[in-house]
Design a protein around this nucleic acid. Structure first.
Length: 487
RNA sequence: CGGGGUGUAGCGCAGCCCGGUUAGCGCACCUGCUUUGGGAGCAGGGGGUCGGAGGUUCGAAUCCUCUCACCCCGACCA
């Protein structure tokens, strides 16, 4: 294997692929577009999952699990929803194989009466079940989340960002009123924002999607959008207000306090393994990953430097109380005892983005100290043994803050408020976000997309369209909107 | 679905144009010794139905035909 990765400046997408593989996060599976998430990548996902799952539970939701297979007819119940997903559904048509002349072939006799699809998302199965579970206003709200895999047979795939099968959580809630459903949608978006900013150190824009960009089957969609280091946008979490669309499709009604029958209001929302792509591309550099400390599989990696077995024993003894202290502080620490040179290990763990490296050699033991190196800045410092636990606790917070600040500056510096379409085209071509007026029509949006490749990302919550003109038509702006090229 | 590319050892590749004993190289792996504060060195060693099927030929990784798969770039999408 060659050393290092393609520099970001040379070819960002090659850099991305190199980092995913060399940091040992994932590799391609044997079927087109599939991905094997390797232990290091999965440990990262586990930590993200734990953080998000905790917030979902704290906000009153419970986890459940619904089936992978969905009757084909279910998808057809909600017209817009079918339109959105029909083109990319894996369909199960038979239930067994048989051996013919040493080859395995599909047994034609096992053809299914009703074909089954592999879920591209679970609204339809879940609403078929909710119909059974909801009769009264007393059954509401129903606040369920599931962690699952889904399959979307996309034309073009990329590790983590768009894979044929991916992991995610999908929340599906049912409410008695439109107001409650709307509050839920916003509550969840706030959880997603906190996940991105407080755990992953990725600043995000929050806001509403346009008609064109919203989820198939939703009344409206909110999303968090992050800027990657190539200045493109990555939609990193979405929260949909489904109105009564699915209740109508599956005829889910309840009796209210006044003994009247009403349709249920719904939401759905999801964050997927795609967010790992955001972590990679929001923070990574030419040495590899730079992981945010709160979700890094190892927050500290210890590199013992010894010349012989005798020294190894001394280091081990010196290290034990330090490790105990760190573990008592819930610091995730990993000691790399592999038979490799220190230089090799330095590079390896830098590629893997471990926030802090601790070097311990004879020199340190002599002076009752350790050497700490920060992955975010590259700074090295010497710390007295007694201060290690405190210093590391502070340093981890500081690394998080620094990553967040860097990413925030980057996004700010590459977000342009402009009012000329010529400028728009130029900026989109160079990369970056544009905040500008928009007349609110799909026609304008589509024309801009066609001419520049940019799409609307969100109508930000803090928009102020008063006095603005549409960047394209010059008409009075209905909304202020963010345009960017997106993943 | 269009365009480009690649299938040869675990990984990355050369060999193919111009067919010819035993198919090479780097990394990784195994053994031993010396090493270890920024990708260690030396010596020895193991590992291959050259993506698949057919054909041409005395002889095919190499030429011909068909086929399969994956990757990258676009359009579609989270």
């Amino acid at each position: 294997m060659s050393k290092g990765v393609t520099p970001q400046s040379k070819n960002f997408s090659a850099w991305y692929n190199d980092v995913v593989k060399k940091a040992d996060l994932a590799e391609h599976g044997p079927v087109k577009g599939t991905m094997v998430i390797k232990p290091y990548g999965f440990a990262l996902w586990d930590n993200i999952k734990y953080a998000l799952d905790s917030m979902i539970k704290e906000s009153g939701h419970v986890n459940a699990y619904f089936p992978l297979f969905i009757p084909k007819s279910f998808l057809a119940q909600e017209a817009k929803h079918v339109e959105g997903f029909a083109k990319e559904c894996a369909v199960v048509t038979h239930t067994r194989l048989k051996a013919v002349n040493g080859d395995m072939v599909v047994d034609p006799e096992s053809k299914l009466e009703e074909e089954v699809i592999v879920r591209p998302t679970s609204e339809t199965v879940i609403w078929a079940m909710y119909k059974k579970w909801i009769q009264s206003y007393r059954d509401l709200p129903l606040l369920i989340n599931q962690w699952a895999n889904v399959v979307r047979w996309e034309m073009r795939t990329r590790l983590f960002l768009r894979t044929t099968e991916f992991l995610w959580q999908e929340g599906h809630t049912a409410h008695a009123t439109a107001k409650e459903a709307e509050e839920e949608t916003v509550t969840i978006l706030e959880i997603y924002r906190r996940l991105a900013e407080e755990f992953l150190a990725i600043p995000v824009l929050t806001g509403q999607k346009t008609e064109i960009e919203k989820f198939a089957g939703a009344e409206h969609t909110y999303s968090i959008e992050a800027m990657m280091k190539d200045k493109r946008a990555l939609q990193s979490g979405t929260s949909h207000n489904l109105g009564q669309n699915f209740a109508k499709a599956f005829n889910v009604t309840f009796q209210n306090k006044d003994n009247k029958e009403e349709m249920v209001y719904a939401t759905s929302w999801g964050v997927s393994t795609r967010i790992i792509g955001a972590v990679i591309m929001a923070h990574g550099d030419d040495k590899g990953l730079r992981l945010p400390p709160k979700v890094a599989p190892h927050q500290v990696v210890v590199i013992p430097i010894s010349r012989n077995d005798e020294q190894k024993k001394v280091i081990k003894k010196y290290l034990n109380p330090i490790l105990d202290k760190l573990k008592n502080n819930s610091v995730r620490v990993n000691v790399d005892w592999r038979e490799e040179s220190p230089g090799f290990k330095f590079n390896d763990w830098e590629m893997k983005g471990v926030p802090i490296r601790m070097e311990i050699g004879p020199r340190d033991i002599e002076n009752n100290q350790v050497v700490l190196a920060r992955r975010d800045t590259g700074e090295k410092s010497t710390v007295q043994a007694n201060d290690i636990a405190d210093t590391i606790a502070k340093m981890l917070i500081d690394i998080h803050d620094n990553l967040f600040a860097e990413a925030t500056d980057f996004m700010k510096n590459n977000t342009n408020e402009i009012d000329s379409y010529d400028e728009f085209k130029k900026i989109i071509n160079d990369g970056g976000f544009i905040r500008c007026g928009w007349d609110g029509t799909s026609e304008t949006e589509l024309k801009i997309k066609e001419e520049t490749g940019a799409t609307t990302r969100v109508i930000p919550f803090d928009e102020n369209p008063k006095g603005l003109k549409c960047i394209y038509t010059g008409k009075p702006a209905k909304h202020e909107v963010i345009f960017a090229k997106a993943y």
